[in-house]
Design a binder for these strands. Structure first.
Lengths: 240, 240
DNA sequence: GAGGCATATATGCTACGTGCAGATAAGGGA
DNA sequence: TCCCTTATCTGCACGTAGCATATATGCCTC
């Protein structure tokens, strides 16, 4: 059994510079859905390495900073968003993934209602696989051209999409991509966009209403050219 | 767009010692099922910090070594096992999780047939929560006493159990815990042990046979005092 | 204001997976 | 040979999902 005094003695003689250590970064895939399209925030790299390529917002992890704090700092600094859903995704550590030196990337993914973002930096995600098969995905510009992504960010983004598809059915994750109040049709559109396939309207409706995650507001949507649908809200807006 | 020459010039002037960097370790939760009990391999720490506490096998990551290679090296060195199922779990990075200095732990979990391990270092896992609720779990010695675990290894192990429960139903992960050939009863025992609840025998049987993951061998088990059950094998023994 | 149109919302039917009960099969032991 | 235990198979009740139909409700046109 260790004692506090033994540990203290050990710490006084421990030299953390004794071994080489990799650098550790966080990268965040900030995803949203708008106009029936899955989008991600990418920024153009201005400095070497890989200047001119596009990358997910990221930063090196500070020595006294938690990984999630670093991810939120990256989002605040490079994407100007705060208070979004954020979850750790996977840690990418191939020895040659960054040409500078050994750099690990602890990847996170974040979800946000499209209405909270200026859409200038959002790009369309093109997923070349079905279901939860996985693999890298493409990011395309407005003209349909694929953007060159930096490092292994196509893999990271692919992992984010795979995770999102996997969690959509059995967690309340879809609500993170919608405003406070929304219609069932909007929720279904979000699910269909993420999954990349159409869903049965009636069973989606029944499943959602039976899940207990929705609460009817009694209000109805506005400014539509047909019968307005009822607005719902998420029962537990706790997750952040 | 970056060019190769620009990147080369950048690399020549880049000094990786410019910033403080955390240490990076891997820790592996090696799990198995025997006698209807979920077990984990833990080793007693002989050196400070936390000497005398029990920990998952782990090691620092070498500068030119992939994360998975480091995890396999830790398994080979400290647990003397090779060629097991291994998957990344989560990266634990709380700034104070290790008293020495900032140490990130990229946690992995591994699954192995109990018959391939000397059971000396295996300890029983006690899960104090149900379903996929999550949270730390206990490791208990043969006398039923809970062992003191080092660092945040109770959290890591809890995450491993949660992941295992979550993946059991829709991936062929249970086969990793059984020998080449096994009976449906053995497979069900593994599932029940991991999930911590009994399963319906008939529907489990139907579900497994319908999944296409099993193949009948035509052979039957031996040395039992009742009707012998048929032996099956996993269709795609590819995963490792 | 009446009727048409588009969408929301509700209801009934069918197919399928699961839990459960009962029947049958096959080995060892008395 | 009979009995005991477990494996294996079959039939039925029930809940959920997919699908089709029917009704409701707002806006638009005339």
């Amino acid at each position: 059994m260790s004692t506090a005094s033994e540990d203290r003695e050990f710490l006084e003689t421990y030299d953390p510079a004794e071994f080489d250590r990799p650098s550790v970064a966080v990268d965040v895939a900030l995803l949203t859905v708008s106009d029936g399209v899955l989008r991600v925030l990418v920024v153009e790299r201005e400095e070497a390495p890989q200047a001119g390529r596009w990358s997910l917002p990221g930063t090196f992890v500070g020595m006294a900073e938690s990984l999630e704090d670093a991810a939120r700092r990256a989002l605040a600094t490079k994407a100007h968003v705060a208070d979004v859903f954020l979850e750790q995704l996977y840690t990418f550590g191939a020895p040659d993934r960054d040409p500078r030196t050994r750099v690990l990337s602890v990847a996170y993914y974040a979800l946000v209602d499209a209405g909270r973002l200026s859409s200038a930096e959002l790009r369309r995600v093109r997923v070349p696989w079905e279901g939860e098969e996985g693999g890298p995905v493409e990011v395309v510009a407005a003209d349909g051209e694929a953007l060159p992504l930096a490092f292994d960010h196509a893999e990271i983004l692919g992992m984010a999409v795979k995770r999102l598809r996997g969690k959509l059915d059995y967690t309340p994750i879809g609500f993170q991509l919608l405003p406070e109040r929304f219609t069932l049709r909007q929720l279904q559109d979000v699910h269909e966009t993420i999954l990349g396939r159409p869903l049965n309207k009636d069973s989606f409706r029944r499943r959602m209403l039976a899940s207990g995650q929705l609460e009817a507001t009694g209000e109805r949507e506005d400014e539509v050219e047909h019968r307005p649908a009822e607005l719902f809200c998420f029962t537990h807006r706790s997750a952040l």
